[in-house]
Simulated assay, not measured.
Amino acid sequence: NLIKPAINCTPSTLEKRAKKLATKIQSNIKNDVKGVYHQSDQVILNNIEFSVNKKDCFQVNYGPENEINKTHKLRSVVKAVDQGQISRESYRELAAVEANLPRENSVSNERIAITDNMNQLIKISLVDMNGRDKLEEALGSDESEFRNPEITQEAIDIMGIGIYRSIKDILNYIIPYLKEKKVLRLSDTTIHLRISGDGRNV
């Protein structure tokens, strides 16, 4: 069978070729090390990295991946992407030239998992923004000190159905963590919060 040039291959075909090459290298190295290292030496091939036509970069890891490290890395990437407001298309371009970066679909799946988990811990509620009375009832009178009247009126004027998270639920979630990290001081009974968005959703 004729082998197509890499430029004419789909990404899935290129990935299969990379895995096939990695398997051959892994098999050959077992014989190659015999003439280089002592028989008592344990030589382990952890990964290989190569490029095709100076464009497509591949990194193949051998052996099981540490799931804890993998999850930590994915969450760090999700945080960096969100804080930097990096679009999915831009991240795909970065991941295409940097083999050490997780694939975009893995990052997207981790973001969904984080969102689902947070939605379980801090519930999202719907509120009808067409009337102040309904808004006051939904938020609760004991939380009125957390709102700016001008912001509330602006929200009522421009929105129909909105969503919100209870400040109580947020505090119940973050206070134990802050206590564990010794951020809170018993001498200071005031907690200062800054609630902001990512520039796209607030």
Rank of each mutant, 00 (worst) to 15 (best):
G63L: 03
G63Y: 01
G63V: 05
G63A: 03
G63D: 04
P64V: 04
P64I: 04
P64K: 06
P64S: 04
P64C: 02
E65R: 10
E65T: 10
E67S: 10
E67Q: 12
I68Q: 10
I68G: 00
I68F: 06
N69L: 12
N69C: 07
N69W: 04
K70H: 09
K70D: 07
T71S: 13
T71E: 12
T71H: 04
T71C: 08
H72M: 12
H72L: 14
H72D: 10
K73R: 12
K73P: 00
K73T: 12
L74I: 03
L74G: 02
R75I: 11
R75G: 01
R75Y: 09
S76Q: 12
S76R: 09
S76P: 00
S76Y: 01
S76F: 02
V77N: 01
V77E: 04
V78T: 10
V78I: 12
K79R: 14
A80V: 11
A80Q: 09
V81S: 05
V81P: 01
D82P: 00
D82V: 15
D82Y: 07
D82H: 08
D82K: 11
D82N: 15
D82E: 15
Q83R: 14
Q83C: 08
Q83H: 10
Q83L: 13
Q83F: 07
Q83E: 15
G84L: 05
G84D: 04
G84M: 05
G84N: 07
G84F: 02
Q85F: 07
I86W: 01
I86S: 03
S87V: 03
S87F: 03
S87Q: 06
S87W: 02
S87R: 05
S87E: 04
R88T: 13
R88I: 13
R88P: 02
E89F: 04
E89L: 06
S90E: 10
S90Y: 05
S90C: 08
Y91G: 01
Y91N: 02
Y91C: 01
R92H: 05
R92N: 11
R92E: 14
R92P: 00
R92F: 01
R92S: 09
R92M: 13
E93D: 12
E93C: 06
E93G: 03
E93I: 12
E93K: 13
L94C: 07
L94N: 06
A95S: 14
A96K: 13
A96C: 08
A96Y: 10
A96P: 00
V97W: 01
V97D: 08
E98K: 13
E98D: 15
E98A: 13
E98C: 15
E98F: 15
A99H: 14
A99E: 14
A99F: 11
N100I: 15
N100L: 14
N100M: 12
N100W: 13
L101E: 03
L101Y: 07
P102V: 05
P102N: 06
P102H: 05
P102Q: 06
P102M: 04
P102C: 05
R103S: 11
R103A: 15
R103C: 10
R103K: 14
E104V: 11
N105D: 15
N105G: 00
N105P: 00
N105H: 13
N105V: 11
N105Q: 14
N105E: 15
S106L: 09
S106G: 00
S106D: 15
S106N: 09
S106T: 07
V107P: 01
V107R: 00
S108H: 14
S108D: 11
S108F: 11
